[in-house]
Nucleic acid binder design. Structure first.
Length: 410
DNA sequence: GGCCGTTAA
DNA sequence: TAGTTTAACGGCC
């Protein structure tokens, strides 16, 4: 599909949580609304949980343990998977190229949003995805450096060249992160996983003067958790051995698993689940309360199971562009904004077409418009077209239909 | 198919 | 003064 998005109507100040959010702003009000909605959802789950506690769930448990037996039977410990993650990537690139920044709290981004903070700044509670003006209050001496994407892309290409030598089919996850399957390389060279990964990191450093951290394990889920353990500039391995994996998993906070975020953490917490070990213990309740899909995901995590497939080919499913801008409500202003976005998106489409050296390989049939209101509420409106489009005029035309159906805004 | 929510970087 | 952007996926209707 193809999505066309339109950011809207931004404004205001800040919200709060502990240090980084302030009460009494539209942003905070919106956060509070979302929070309340989550509380309601959690309450419902909790009610169900209290009922289930009184039930006899032994037949469910039999069913579940049959599922688990099958998962266990398919466990694959034959791969050595590596997750490599550059340390504070954008910030490190900026420090490298301007040594006067070293040792000082610094973040890459602007007053409205930060991409990365260096470790000095993190000591003050400055985090990525934090607005720069909030960060400035936490750390008045914080130096803000604007983004230099071209530079990060160049560095990323250098790093990827290193990866390719160890696994030609490595999976890049972003400019600064990738999964590698080094099983073959290790068989070929007869060297140890730790040694090989140390060498990858050394090579990255000698090519870029930047440090990376890495996790080594039997699958991607575990490797990803591991790459965080000795960050920055370190690596950690879980042996390809069931006992080692289980030992590692048992007391691991659920939140460490990629895919378990703030909301899922809070839901699990309400069910008295903190660690992956707890997930396994309470598997019957998870089975009864969550969808089958979510149950499968959580139970696999609790067993330390994860994908061992590392491949480079990737099919994009959508492309989008969005902007947050000062409040607008006049139709002609909104249409002008839509025009900009349509032009921008079609240019992005074309750029990717050219990089594959073909013409108009990318096209889509669903156009989505995203609206953000002055109260920070977000709504999407989509329309699927009976043909494929890619031209700016077509994006604008169908975007306009969606927009006009929503007018007047507010 | 449409819309919403969650997650991640 | 000021709270992003892009992509993917799941759930539900």
């Amino acid at each position: 599909s193809l999505r066309k998005r339109m950011g809207g109507l931004a404004a205001n100040k800040a919200g709060l949580q502990s240090v980084d959010r302030e009460k009494g702003t539209a942003f905070f009000e919106n956060e509070a609304r979302k929070d309340e909605a989550l509380n309601v959802k959690i309450d419902k789950m909790l009610k169900k949980y209290e009922f289930l506690k009184k039930d006899d769930l032994s037949s469910d448990l039999v069913k579940i343990d049959r599922i688990i037996h099958e998962l266990e039977r398919d466990r694959d410990l034959s791969h050595i998977i590596v997750h490599v993650d550059m340390d504070a990537f954008y910030a490190s690139v900026e420090e490298r190229d301007n040594p006067s920044l070293r040792g000082k709290p610094m973040a890459v981004g602007d007053t409205s949003m930060l991409s990365t903070a260096n470790y000095e700044a993190r000591k003050f509670g400055v985090r990525s995805a934090m607005p720069g003006f909030i960060a400035k209050r936490l750390c008045p001496n914080l130096i803000l450096v604007p983004l230099h994407f071209e530079k990060y892309r160049t560095v990323s290409m250098q790093v990827r060249k290193v990866f390719a030598q160890y696994d030609p089919n490595f999976t890049p996850m972003s400019l600064d992160e990738a999964y590698l399957d080094v099983t073959e390389y290790i068989q070929k060279t007869g060297r140890s996983p730790d040694e090989v990964v140390q060498q990858i990191r050394d090579e990255i450093f000698s090519k870029t003067r930047l440090t990376a951290s890495a996790g080594i394990a039997a699958n991607k889920l575990l490797a990803k958790v591991c790459s965080d353990i000795n960050k920055p500039n370190g690596q950690y391995r879980i042996q390809n051995n069931l006992d080692c994996i289980m030992e590692f998993i048992r007391n691991l906070p659920a939140r460490k698993v990629s895919g378990i975020g703030r909301v899922t953490e809070r839901i699990l917490d309400a069910l008295e689940i903190k660690t992956l070990g707890d997930i396994f213990q309470k598997r019957v309740y998870i089975y009864k309360i969550f969808t089958l899909n979510s149950f499968q995901f959580l139970i696999r995590a609790s067993l330390g199971l994860g994908s061992t497939v590392v491949k480079s080919d990737h099919n994009r499913k959508s492309m989008s562009v969005e902007r947050t801008f000062a409040p607008l409500s006049r139709p002609e202003d909104l249409l002008a904004k839509l025009r900009e976005l349509a032009d921008h998106l079609s240019a992005d489409l074309k750029k990717e077409d050219l990089s594959v050296s073909r013409q108009h390989t990318l096209h889509g049939k669903t156009v989505t418009l995203k609206f953000k209101s002055i109260s920070y509420g977000v709504t999407n409106r989509a329309k699927t077209i009976p043909r494929y489009i890619h031209k700016a005029d077509d994006l604008f035309y169908f975007g306009k239909q969606i927009l006009e159906a929503e007018l007047p805004l507010n």
